[in-house]
C-alpha cells in the first residue's frame, strides 16, 4: 500500500496536522517515513520481530489518537517517535522481568531542559549520521560499551548489570560513566568536525 504521492511533499508538521483532522493517509505517510528506524530500535531492544512491530505500531497509533502529544517545538517527529519507542520497549522488557517501574526511565530528564533550538548539542546531532554514532559506540572499550548497551537497550539497572556481568556494582557504575562521557565527547567532536 503506497500513500498518495502528494503526501511525500508534506512536512512532518503538516502530516501531524493531518492526524488532528483524522486523516489516516497522513498516518500512512508517517509510517512510511519513520517506522523503519523505530522498528530497528525496538528489534534491537526486544529481539523479537513480532513484539517489535507491535510496540512501534502502538506508538504510531498513540500518535494517531492523540497527535497533540507531539510538540514540534520540542524536537522533530522522528526523534519523538524513537523516544516513545524506547520508553515503550523498556516498559515491555521491565514488565517481562517483573521490575516494572522500580526505577526511573531516563530521558524525561530532558524535560527539565530548555527547548533545544539554540543548544549547540542539537545541531551537533543533526549533522551526525547514524553511522558516525555507531562508530563512536564501536570505539568504546568493549567493557564500557557492554554496560552502556545493557543499561540503555535492555533497560537494566546498575545492580542488574552487576549481577549479570559478575562485576562489582562500583565497577559497573564507573564503566557506565566513562562510556557516556566518552560518547558525549565524540559526538561533540563529530558535531564540530561534521
Amino acid at each position: 500500500m503506497e500513500p498518495p504521492a502528494e503526501y511525500e511533499g508534506h512536512t512532518d508538521e503538516e502530516l501531524v496536522r493531518g492526524l488532528v483532522l483524522g486523516d489516516a493517509r497522513s498516518l500512512e505517510q508517517i509510517s512510511v517515513r519513520h517506522a523503519r528506524p523505530a522498528y530497528s530500535l525496538a528489534l534491537r531492544m526486544l529481539g523479537d520481530p513480532g513484539w517489535a512491530e507491535e510496540v512501534v505500531q502502538d506508538v504510531l497509533l498513540r500518535l494517531w489518537r492523540k497527535p497533540e502529544l507531539f510538540d514540534p517545538a520540542r524536537g522533530d517527529l522522528r526523534k519523538w517517535l524513537l523516544t516513545m519507542t524506547h520508553h515503550a520497549a523498556v516498559d515491555g522488557l521491565r514488565g517481562r522481568r517483573g521490575t516494572a517501574r522500580s526505577f526511573d526511565a531516563g530521558p524525561d530528564a530532558l524535560d527539565l531542559l530548555p527547548v533545544q533550538d539554540d543548544d549547540p548539542a542539537d545541531s551537533a546531532w543533526r549533522s551526525l549520521q547514524a553511522e558516525s554514532v555507531r562508530r563512536a559506540l564501536a570505539s568504546l572499550p568493549r567493557e564500557q560499551r557492554e554496560v552502556l548497551e545493557l543499561a540503555y537497550y535492555l533497560g537494566l539497572s546498575q545492580a542488574e548489570i552487576s549481577r549479570r556481568t559478575g562485576q562489582p556494582l562500583g565497577t559497573v557504575k564507573t564503566r557506565t560513566r566513562l562510556a557516556l562521557s566518552k560518547l558525549r565527547d565524540s559526538l561533540r567532536q563529530a558535531g564540530v568536525d561534521g
Binding site: 523503519r36 528506524p37 522498528y39 530497528s40 530500535l41 528489534l43 534491537r44 526523534k79 524513537l82 523516544t83 519507542t85 524506547h86 531516563g106 530521558p107 530528564a109 530532558l110 527539565l112 531542559l113 533545544q116 543548544d119 548539542a121 542539537d122 551537533a124 546531532w125 551526525l128 547514524a130 554514532v133 555507531r134 563512536a136 559506540l137 552502556l148 540503555y152 537497550y153 557516556l180 560518547l183 558525549r184 559526538l187 561533540r188
Partner: peptide, 18 residues
C-alpha cells in the same frame, strides 16, 4: 546535564538498520 541531552537520541539511532 544538557551536555548529555543528545545521547539518548544518538543511541536510538545507533542500532543496526533493519
Amino acid at each position: 546535564l544538557a551536555s548529555y541531552s543528545e545521547i539518548p537520541y544518538a543511541l536510538n539511532l545507533a542500532v543496526p538498520d533493519e
